[in-house]
Amino acid sequence: MIDTSPATAAGRDQSGFRLFLGRLLATPAGWIGTVITALVILLAISAPFVAPSEPLKIVPTDLLKPPGSPGHLFGADELGRDVLSRVIYGSRISLVVAGLSIGLAILTGVALGTSAGVAGGWWDYLVMRLMDALLAFPLLVLAIAISVALGRGVFGLVLAIAAVNMPVFTRLTRAQTLQLKERPFITATTAMGASALYKVWRHVIPNLLNALIVQATTATSFAIIIEAGLSFLGLGIQAPAPSWGVMIADAKTYMLVAPHLLFVPSSALFITVLGLNLLGDALSDALDPRMLEK
């Protein structure tokens, strides 16, 4: 072989991950989304160290203190609790619930989707009609019903949010599996005598990852919105836990006198979701196979 080809290869040889990171951070949307998401995760992890006070500590002298008051950068709520601390701790609830539920949704969705795609026939038909039925439910009503059925609390909440997100992952996985199944590199493994399970595990799932990552990012932002929404309705996380949804619901009563109780947790929620959506968009561009050659 002549020298050009190895040289060419060496040029592209930097690890795929660095290349991907370069593409991800190349646009403002990409790095803003990455920075916001990283920051939120960091805050959630280090909440006990960065929060100025306990999220549940009631200070009767500080009732409804406006932002900028001494000791309360973002003010205090109707019980004199520090809003900033509650918002920081709130990020833990959001991320844990969203992370667990999306993780669960992915696991079940991938299992159902790949099995439906590979097996076909009646199993495929049954799974897909079941997903149609799940999707036909008004989403929040489904989440409410499941969450109520399983008792209000984190467990019910996680299952409910997982259930409403699962159909998306099932459909995505199945569609990709059907497409991948016809790709020659999988047909070639049939000629080598590979079993269906081998093909799914070794070829289908690794090649699904990109699409899953993109969908998972969007789904997580969605899960955060539902979690706060259910808690807002009093059907998710229960007071006094510092969930953003609970804080927003409580703020309704004091809207006129203490609007910061509405605006601070709302902004936290909005910024987190925005960050994830920006990241999702950037990931979908950066992982787009059509972009790989650019």
Partner: peptide
Amino acid sequence: LVGISLPSYVLALV
């Protein structure tokens, strides 16, 4: 993007 990132209850309350 702002539109899809704003939960309906936040927008409604604001």
